[in-house]
Amino acid sequence: MKKLRVAILGCGTIGRFVLDHLADGVVPGCEPVAVYLRSPESRGREHLESRKIPWVTSLEDLLGFSPDVVVEASTHDAVVAMGPEILKRGVDFIPLSLGAFVDAGLMETMTAAAEKGGSRLHIPSGGIGALDALQTALIGGVEKVTMTTRKYSTTWKGIPAVDELGVDLENLKEPLLLFEGPARECMKKYPQSINIGAALSIAGIGFDRTIIKIYADPTVEYNTHEIRWEGATGKVTVLFENTPVPENPKTTYQACLSTLFVLKNMTGSRIIGA
């Protein structure tokens, strides 16, 4: 059986995770064929060479490896700059930097490119889930969607929006509310750290009606996300307590595995809950 040929944009925490698991045969129907790096000095180059995986620094060269799907594990800019062209060329696209979709026109651009190329845009759940249940409820009508995110205090260090608050994250004694408001505003303040809010907004009632709360919390061990929605089907509350990736606490193990799940569904003859 022909394997699904997977190319990856970026070789950071998630990119390397996906690469290694595909190379090790964790998703039997897939094989990694090449990785895009922004420059020869990009992190991950030595790792790629140790695994004998080709790397390139242009999209054209990446597409020259004839991938069936490209996984973006790079930046929001990469989603905007490369996503439409990838889809237009008939290659499926899995973006992980979902905060890029705060741009109101990007989804329409991506959809049009996919229709032109006969490809598909796949939106992964990332560090959360239950998006299939939310989309089911959406058919009947959903009135309200909220998500409350709590991460350990120092996880928020180095983020400009938090630095502007002048908070001493090292010595925080109790949970501190960093943000409350529409997902669209949240994406602009926390673009790399709250991509799950984008996934929730895309799956549900949109960036302007989805309400996000963010806490720096010295009492939590896990990256915690509580999602609630209500509508014609009733009320739902879902709680995720995710294990952070040791190398990068801003990323969760669940988010890494979510990408593999999308690829698994693309290769399997049976799809459950998606």
Score class of each variant (00 low, 15 high):
residue 254 Q to F: 13
residue 192 Q to A: 14
residue 238 V to G: 04
residue 116 K to I: 08
residue 214 I to D: 00
residue 274 A to K: 10
residue 33 V to W: 08
residue 156 W to E: 12
residue 155 T to W: 07
residue 19 L to P: 00
residue 141 G to M: 04
residue 67 P to W: 02
residue 190 Y to S: 12
residue 24 D to G: 11
residue 20 D to G: 08
residue 264 K to P: 02
residue 247 E to M: 01
residue 39 S to D: 13
residue 10 G to M: 13
residue 134 L to P: 09
residue 66 S to T: 12
residue 248 N to Q: 12
residue 159 I to Q: 01
residue 235 K to W: 02
residue 30 C to G: 09
residue 48 L to Y: 02
residue 119 S to A: 14
residue 36 Y to F: 15
residue 134 L to Y: 08
residue 11 C to Q: 04
residue 144 K to G: 09
residue 210 T to Q: 01
residue 133 A to W: 15
residue 166 G to N: 14
residue 191 P to S: 05
residue 84 P to E: 01
residue 154 T to K: 05
residue 89 R to L: 09
residue 155 T to E: 08
residue 3 K to S: 08
residue 32 P to D: 13
residue 15 G to M: 09
residue 152 Y to P: 02
residue 138 L to D: 08
residue 26 V to N: 01
residue 3 K to T: 08
residue 43 R to N: 12
residue 211 I to F: 12
residue 273 G to V: 14
residue 122 H to L: 12
residue 252 T to G: 06
residue 95 P to N: 00
residue 242 N to T: 14
residue 60 E to M: 13
residue 173 K to V: 09
residue 50 S to Y: 06
residue 211 I to A: 00
residue 101 F to G: 05
residue 166 G to W: 05
residue 53 I to C: 00
residue 193 S to T: 03
residue 65 F to L: 11
residue 139 I to P: 00
residue 197 G to Q: 08
residue 178 L to W: 05
residue 178 L to E: 15
residue 208 D to L: 12
residue 273 G to C: 04
residue 25 G to S: 10
residue 114 A to L: 09
residue 171 N to R: 09
residue 32 P to H: 02
residue 147 M to Q: 13
residue 57 T to N: 14
residue 240 F to G: 11
residue 221 E to C: 11
residue 18 V to Q: 03
residue 115 E to V: 00
residue 76 H to S: 14
residue 84 P to I: 10
residue 158 G to E: 06
residue 5 R to N: 11
residue 58 S to L: 13
residue 60 E to V: 08
residue 11 C to D: 12
residue 191 P to L: 03
residue 14 I to D: 05
residue 244 P to W: 04
residue 272 I to W: 02
residue 72 E to F: 13
residue 118 G to M: 13
residue 86 I to V: 14
residue 207 F to P: 06
residue 127 G to L: 08
residue 249 P to R: 01
residue 59 L to M: 09
residue 161 A to H: 08
residue 117 G to Y: 07
residue 171 N to D: 10
residue 140 G to E: 09
residue 13 T to D: 00
residue 239 L to K: 09
residue 38 R to E: 14
residue 72 E to S: 11
residue 156 W to V: 01
residue 221 E to H: 15
residue 242 N to P: 09
residue 259 T to G: 12
residue 251 T to F: 01
residue 228 R to P: 03
residue 17 F to H: 03
residue 264 K to N: 11
residue 76 H to T: 05
residue 224 T to V: 15
residue 166 G to Y: 07
residue 66 S to C: 07
